[in-house]
């Protein structure tokens, strides 16, 4: 049996993506994950394009779940 973490590692790294049409600029994400997301001068998220470091993966998943507009995603690669 392969556990979740191993599968995740095998699948390669993940990056955060925002759907700019869905995003309403709440800025919740920048507050929850300032390590990877900052807000621009209009409140819309600027996302670190690099893969999410393993230490922040859990936080990143929580942030994705917290976005009220369902605009954030973790995608492979």
């Amino acid at each position: 049996m392969v556990d979740y973490q191993t599968r995740r590692a095998a699948a390669g790294s993940q990056t955060l993506r925002v759907n700019p049409i869905a995003c309403t600029g709440h800025g919740v994400c920048a507050e929850l994950l300032p390590e990877l997301i900052s807000a621009d001068e209009w409140g819309y998220p600027i996302i670190d394009p690099r893969p999410v470091p393993p230490a922040l993966e859990a936080e990143a998943r929580k942030t994705v779940a917290a976005c009220p507009a369902l605009a954030l995603r973790l995608v492979r690669g």
Partner: peptide, 9 residues
Amino acid sequence: GQCGPCFNG
């Protein structure tokens, strides 16, 4: 006008 950065910028 759908995306914040485009709409504002």
